[in-house]
């Protein structure tokens, strides 16, 4: 499969935090959801993708090109939506369009106006008067109006009401219809991903825990419940993390098949939701593969 974004052994150090040895592939034509707790390194990873940050070590390639020599060509083909307004607050969309539009070779003013109309965005009102949802729609309208092949979004659904969240997901499915586009977006609202993500990338404390198709995630991870007697040093190795209570244990396994072999009917094994996976993985201090 053709990777649109490719991180090879990328490391970026900060005081007290680092993205370390990240290898990440984002596949063309699919939606990849990027999950992780707050402060896990989602925004840093996205900034590395956009060349807003440069890796200390390793390489970032987008569309197979490197930023050192092809920065403009790469960014021509990316549409970005950030968490928070990056546009001049006092300006209206018409003026913002005058700044953003000419930057792109394939800017389509008619398409932009069409999106503005569809999203019910006023062109003559200052962006700072927009609600959070409207600001997001404005960013999205700008991101979609220059034939971008890769849409990168940082927490696009944070702070949006459920109705607009759903509209947004529908819209994203719309733009995915031709199969030429790729979407990468970070979120901590995992229910968004259940609907449209094809791949899930999960980051914890600057480390990529996994990047799997939703099928692999569903087949590998399971939530296990049973009585405490089932736990011993060997069986605990099956789990990412175990929560014990007086009435039994609840644990996450990343190897459902093996767990089924070991416990058989003795334990209840269910599908783990992304939220379960995030919760248990974040509680475990032991690294798992």
């Amino acid at each position: 499969m053709e990777p649109v974004i490719e991180f090879t052994n990328v490391t970026k150090q900060f005081k007290g935090f680092a993205v370390e040895n990240m290898d990440l592939q984002v596949n063309k034509g699919f939606v990849t959801g990027f999950i992780g707790a707050n402060g896990a390194g989602k925004s840093t990873t996205i900034k590395l993708m956009m060349n807003l940050l440069r890796p200390d070590e390793g390489e970032v390639r987008v569309f197979g090109l490197d930023y050192a020599t092809h920065e403009k060509a790469i960014k021509e083909r990316i549409g970005f939506v950030y968490d928070g307004n990056v546009f001049y607050e006092g300006m209206n969309l018409k003026d913002i369009q005058r700044i953003v539009g000419p930057a792109y070779r394939h800017w389509d003013g008619a398409l932009f106006r069409q999106y503005a109309e569809q999203f019910e965005l006023p062109l003559n009102k200052a962006v700072k008067t927009f609600s959070k949802g409207m600001q997001m729609k404005a960013s999205l309208a700008l991101a979609l109006s220059h034939q971008a092949e890769l849409i990168i979004m940082d927490e696009p659904t944070a702070g949006l009401d459920p109705i607009f969240r759903r509209e947004l997901l529908d819209l994203l499915q719309d733009i995915m219809l031709d199969g030429e586009r790729t979407i990468f977006f970070s979120t901590h609202i995992t229910s968004d991903l259940d609907r449209i993500a094809d791949y899930i990338a999960f980051i914890k404390k600057g480390k990529l825990m996994f990047n799997q198709s939703i099928h692999e995630v569903a087949e590998n991870y399971g939530l296990v419940r049973g009585s405490l007697e089932l736990l011993d040093r060997d069986t605990e190795k099956l789990f990412v993390h175990v929560d014990r209570t007086a009435s039994g244990f609840e644990a996450l396994t990343s190897d459902v098949r093996k767990t089924e072999d070991v416990f058989g009917e003795a334990a209840v094994i269910e599908r783990a939701s992304l939220e379960d996976i995030m919760y248990f993985t974040n509680r475990s201090d032991v690294q798992h593969v």
Binding site: F30, R195, I214
Partner: peptide, 9 residues
Amino acid sequence: KDLHISVIT
């Protein structure tokens, strides 16, 4: 799109 599920499914 019609079923509101992911392409990979």
